[in-house]
Design a protein around this nucleic acid. Structure first.
Lengths: 247, 247
DNA sequence: TCGATGGTTCGGCGCCGGCCGAAGCATTCA
DNA sequence: TGAATGCTTCGGCCGGCGCCGAACCATCGA
């Protein structure tokens, strides 16, 4: 047995995520909001006691963090790195052997628009990324993103104050592979600011108990006018291969 | 219990990685070479039978792939996505609670230079990335990378034929957060080509049974001359905070 | 046609860890 | 102060999974 130096602790982390109940909790937290223990219990489908044990472990490993408020305890992911790891696992899970991929019932809403930790994902997010790229406001050269000078102005006009808080560690503009669409969308602090702003404007709103986002009437108009979305952005993107022709 | 649609399968993937033996095997495969079952058994510290079972599971979940050759079976990671997920978990594990982070004995070699799936990592790789950025051959704007026109020429002169095979799915130039240095190094197909070339030139060579790379005498000269490495690149980088001035 | 070597399959053992019921704190209302 | 709510701790049950020994298949060298 050689070189187990780090291999061991990665197993610890992975096995923490590798329990169905905990995975469900973490997935729920990928929505970006802090959730109370009880809500997490329901997401996981286990009793409160069991949940408590799980949360203690996750906390201990610093995968999540807690904030107590009155008699509630609100849990959130501990860092963007955690979100990234979970995201990578989601990608892997989605691309794995088909076998039993039920593509759940309420998934439709999730596929259309949802939060991904602190930014948007789903078809809306992919369409936004496409448009911003086409308009020349960002340059999404595979896996990475860059804001152009025009983009800088555009986002500034739109009311995002990116740049004012250069919390150095955080990339301004990353792309994040959308696990449902298999195409990149905007992440990084730009992505986060965009979500904040559109929530603020009331263009989208969080659906209760879910990561899904509802697109409001105002949002319909706003997104179309400001970001010039293609008219067919709601159509499911055919994953990479299939021909685009038929309805 | 709501929204368990995908949360469940991510648990399956994570729990596969979440076993010490399997994690060790996968870590070993992060070296980028295909390894025979027996070698993996030794890496994992379990018997051949046990290893066989583990490999079957990993194979079944398409985390790894096999190629049989005579009476050997060579296993490798199934895709870059798998490598990315493992990498994310490594990052998480490395940044977790200190507790028992032994910083193993032979780690010194690993920290200096090693392979990371198909490209280089460690202090050498970080120093290369820094130099290439300073020289203006690549632009490493956080999280992402872009090759400049000068860089294009430079890499071409150096003998890399990036671009000739545009296997679309693969980003040309990504950055990858080095888990030992906590600073970015070059990944993507450019990173891969760079590793190939330097192995080819004999500037580095693989150490047996390890992901570590040995830097040859020729490599010392070559890297210094071609990439203009700072003279102190061998010094351990102080993680993120500490001031750069002294020494 | 035989060993020898690399890998896999089978069966049974043992332990770790997730689960819940019951009880115990803390906080917030009345 | 007492009851309700949210969460945690404790103890015991039980299933799943990782482990190995033994036997079995496949490939290579003489």
């Amino acid at each position: 047995m050689l070189n187990m130096a780090s291999g061991n602790t990665i197993a610890e982390v992975a096995s923490l995520i590798g329990d169905a109940a905990r995975a469900n909790m973490l997935s729920a937290l990928m929505g970006g909001q802090a959730l109370a223990a009880g809500e997490l219990a329901r997401h996981a489908g286990v009793t409160a006691q069991t949940t408590s044990g799980h949360l203690a472990k996750l906390l201990d490993a610093q995968l999540i963090a807690v904030e107590k408020q009155g008699r509630h305890r609100y849990y959130r992911l501990a860092s963007p790195e955690v979100a990234q790891a979970i995201h990578a696992l989601m990608t892997l899970a989605a691309s794995g052997p088909k076998r039993h991929r039920p593509v759940g019932p309420r998934d439709a809403a999730l596929r259309l628009a949802r939060t991904c930790y602190d930014h948007m994902a789903g078809r809306l997010a992919v369409a936004l990324a496409d448009s911003l790229n086409d308009l020349g406001y960002v340059r999404l050269s595979d896996g990475a993103g860059r804001v152009t000078p025009e983009g800088q102005r555009f986002f500034c006009d739109f009311g995002l104050d990116m740049g004012t808080e250069p919390r150095s560690k955080r990339p301004l503009c990353r792309t994040c592979l959308d696990w449902s669409e298999r195409r990149p969308h905007l992440a990084g602090s730009l992505g986060a600011a965009l979500l904040d702003k559109t929530l603020d404007l009331g263009w989208v709103s969080r659906m209760p108990e879910s990561r899904a986002l509802r697109i409001t009437r105002a949002g319909e108009m706003g997104f179309a006018a400001t970001f010039r979305l293609a008219s067919d952005w709601r159509d499911p993107a055919l994953p990479q291969d299939a021909a685009p022709g038929a309805a």
